[in-house]
Design a protein around this nucleic acid. Structure first.
Length: 285
DNA sequence: CACCATGTTCCTTG
DNA sequence: CCAAGGAACATGGT
């Protein structure tokens, strides 16, 4: 489920659901997701703790808890990896096959499930220290963005996945933002002209903001099993409030018509990840 | 059986 | 030292 917009919508949802709820029991079923925290310490610190706040940094969920034993607030960092999900479900509901961590809150369980176990739920908050600016905050300036790109020979598509450049862009929205900006994914970062840097900077913000807005308007069933859960790369169709339309314009659309020029969308592989783009709207050079 | 998948980190190669 | 490429992690879908 996991790029910045999906995490943002999940955080807004969970912030309300978890506020002031206390953890009665902690069940760690896949200790690997706690790395580098040990199961023993994880359970010791969090049993009896109370959720006080939740925010997002890049693709990370930042839980703030209060624990009787600890002096200051406890920070719990979550990351969904490729397939992670988090939701509350009533006690008694069968746990999903790949439940990694389960917090009992009384009548409900707060579940972190992750099919592939690439995600994390840890007391080690070090990871967020290496993140670049939040793309939707004032700290993400076009000037700093331009300076960082000037220092890199990497292709711009691969560079956008660097969480130290700007936090939260993943493989899907990297393709989408470049399409929106009309920039070839193959362009070397340092060769982007100032006008292109500005267009990309605006496209990143618009693409992410639109996705958050779209995701917020969709009736999500965070705990369900439908295809729309968590992954909401779609939104209400304009002028047709009952219908949903796919929002992604190029991602996973190889061979389909470009929404702008009608030409064919192409797929290429960069750093072992698929990139989708329209060669006519995003020319090399 | 083959290949693909929303992410991150580590290792090798050049 | 750096960048690029690949593998690893683990499971499921097509």
């Amino acid at each position: 489920m996991p790029e910045l917009p999906e995490v943002e919508v999940l955080v807004r949802h969970l912030a309300r659901a978890l506020r002031n709820r206390s953890i009665r029991q902690v069940q760690v079923r896949r200790p690997r997701v706690l790395r580098p925290t040990s199961s023993r310490r994880f359970e010791q610190v969090l049993r009896g703790a109370t959720f006080r706040g939740l925010s997002r940094r890049g693709k990370y969920l930042v839980f703030v808890l209060r624990a009787a034993r600890e002096r200051g607030p406890v920070i719990l960092l979550g990351h969904l990896g490729m397939t992670g999900r988090m939701y509350l479900q009533p006690v008694g509901t069968p746990l999903p096959r790949h439940a990694a961590v389960v917090f009992n809150l009384g009548r409900e369980n707060f579940v972190f499930e992750d099919t592939r176990y690439f995600g994390r739920l840890t007391l080690d908050a070090g990871a967020i220290g290496r993140l670049g600016p939040e793309p939707l905050d004032g700290g993400f300036t076009v000037e700093a963005f331009a300076r960082a790109l000037k220092r890199s020979a990497q292709s711009i598509k691969v560079k956008l996945l660097d969480q130290g450049l700007v936090a939260g862009i993943g493989n899907i929205y990297a393709s989408e933002a470049l399409f929106r900006a009309g920039i070839s994914p193959r362009m070397a970062s340092r060769r982007l002209q100032p006008v292109h840097v500005r267009r990309l900077w605006r496209a990143i913000r618009a693409t992410l903001a639109e996705a958050i807005e779209g995701g917020s308007t969709v009736p999500l069933n965070q705990a369900g099993t439908g295809k729309r859960d968590g992954l909401f790369y779609f939104g209400r169709a304009a002028g047709a409030p009952d219908r949903y339309e796919e929002r992604l314009r190029v991602y996973d659309r190889e061979g389909q018509a470009c929404p702008d020029c009608g030409g064919g969308i192409k797929r290429l592989v960069q750093a072992a990840r698929s990139t989708y783009f329209c060669p006519r709207c995003q020319p090399d050079e």
